[in-house]
Design a protein around this nucleic acid. Sequence first.
DNA 1: TTTCCAGCCCTTTTT
DNA 2: GGGCTGGAAA
Length: 720
Amino acid sequence: MDVSHLLDQLNDAQREAVTADEGHVLVLAGAGSGKTRVLVHRIAWLIQVHHVSPMGLLAVTFTNKAAGEMRHRVGKLLNLRPDGLWIGTFHGICHRMLRMHAAEVGLPETFQILDSDDQYRLIRRVIRDMELDEGEFPARQMQGFINHHKEEGRRPGDIECFDHAFQARQLAIYQHYQDYCERSGLIDFAELLLRTLELLRDSDARRAHYQDRFGHILIDEFQDTNTLQYALVRLLAGSKNQLFVVGDDDQSIYGWRGAKVENVVHFDRDFSPKVVRLEQNYRSTATILEAANRVIDHNAERMGKNLWTEGEKGEALKLFTAFNAEEEAEFVIARIQDWMEQGGRASETAILYRSNAQSRLFEQVLLREEIPYRVYGGLRFFERAEVKDAMAYLRLVHNPHDDPAFERVINLPARGIGERTVALIRDHARRQGQSLFEAARSLCESGGFTARAGNAVAGFLALIGELTDEYGQAGLGEAMQAAIDRAELADWYRSREPADRAEAREENLAELVRAAESFTQPFEDEQAGLSPTASFLAQAALEAGEHQGERWQDCVQLMTLHSAKGLEFPLVFMAGMEEGLFPHQKSAEEPGRLAEERRLCYVGMTRAMQQLVLSHAESRMIHGQTNFSRPSRFLSEIPAELVEELRPGRPRVAPAQSHGGAPQDAEGLSLGTTVRHPRFGLGTVVTIEGQGANARIQINFESAGSKWLVLGYASLERVG
DNA sequence: TTTCCAGCCCTTTTT
DNA sequence: GGGCTGGAAA
């Protein structure tokens, strides 16, 4: 068989990884070195050359987006849909296994996944039920405590308690929370993994089954695996299956949420894999790579890697020092306008920052300049309050014992069921070991409520009952619509929120109905015996959807450095390069955390394809107070010869001109000249950088403010 | 029961 | 500076 199409487009190192024979493989894949390509081609290679059945392959990624892309690319390369091939996230794959063996792991058929918000609310509920001080045991912190232990594979009984009253209470909260989940058929994200691990560990039959099935296991972003995930991988691998692991220790930026870079080293030790390094970069200019390499060099304990490229040297990095954060934002947006003036697209530019709060200033300027932009982060579709409200009704129809769903909508919209009444239901439920739904019903029947509350609760129960009865014949979309209509959710938002806010919520509800209507159950879910509703609910929890709908628009991309991982842009800005902000204050003290900040810097720098612009402000408002800070230490780790410093804003001659060149170009523009621009009108030349058609000049326009323009493109007319 | 305001917190995020 | 929470007032 001709397999040249699988190898043609690969370089030597990539080919070595793709065609590796027997044994495990560890691919250390630098940024922009084509790791997804290697994974995709490896899968195709195994299927077409080694005739491995797609059924015998398991490919694991960290995000649904990555899984989707891999699935798509494998299909395209093989020119068919590889049915039976399991490609998914750790959580998605564990979920599927648990559905197939629900009874065996002690879960009801209708078990529901708790997302972090559900989990947080439930933990807060538990703490209140236990009558503990919420100041001493903040729910956020307890959520961290529980998830941390679960991710290390520890049940409450596995945690050593040194007879500390405080520690004992923390454990009690974990235990109560867990009991609550068991009772209501709920499972949080970490539990998906832990339950699966226990299933494979404790059941010889199941372990044997999956070990026999998956002869080849491929894992992406291995540096992001946590303890539980690595344990799962080891269990699934057994003694004979082949692991193909791709990762980059230099891009490990999630240590703070339990990821263990050490797993890369442990893998090397535990499995003695063939190690392949992908160091040729296909993304950035040589200058950008050199700068990034030099920064990451300051980290100790690296596995060692040096990115190189056959491509252009490219321009020097730019460094801008702003007086304050406002000026920094003005500068960045002016450079983007400049880029667009020259024919660049807004979507080719990204503004990266360390913390979300930094986006505000950029948004203000972008809004004023009427440049479309998109901010990553924030709430995603299925995390929006109105969507969760409507989904809670569907959850109750699917499983009335879903207490978090019950709590969410028992009085939403307000139907006169207050805290006292709900407390009564909770209390009854706890004493009877029932769900809130059952407790409410039995209290209704036994007349345990006041007349007023009783009517209200009966009304709510009847509503759920009606929806349940009708749902039998209806499709998912109709059921969703019915729930929204009957509950009168839209009226509720309209009655208590400003019109634009309420309208946005209504639009989201309409979108939710559309999503339900067009939902097609994944083939694998159907095989695992899930009902379409169960599939839909699970997917909403596991895959919360897009941050914002308008992807299509050509707009500037704003995001944190963390969310930029895996992406690339021709023009990248890294803003807020200041000590205290980046590296962040809270990470600066510990060497390990500082190293992670430096990796974050490396990740940011390697996003840039053509141009990288770094900026810092001498002062900025943080928490309502003006802070003064020094430039980030990472800036000083970049060799000076790779950086061009810009200091516009101050009326000062640019460096290029101080070397004797006349501060004037062929068209006779000089500082102070008045010019006319077709769009921006009249303005005064403030700064000139460079010469000839490539010269960049800053002009203070009378009405449009300060702009940076490239002389060759700007069609300026000299006035007077 | 609902609504409003003062006081609290404040790094990064996917599942 | 701004978003969320909980306690106090209507």
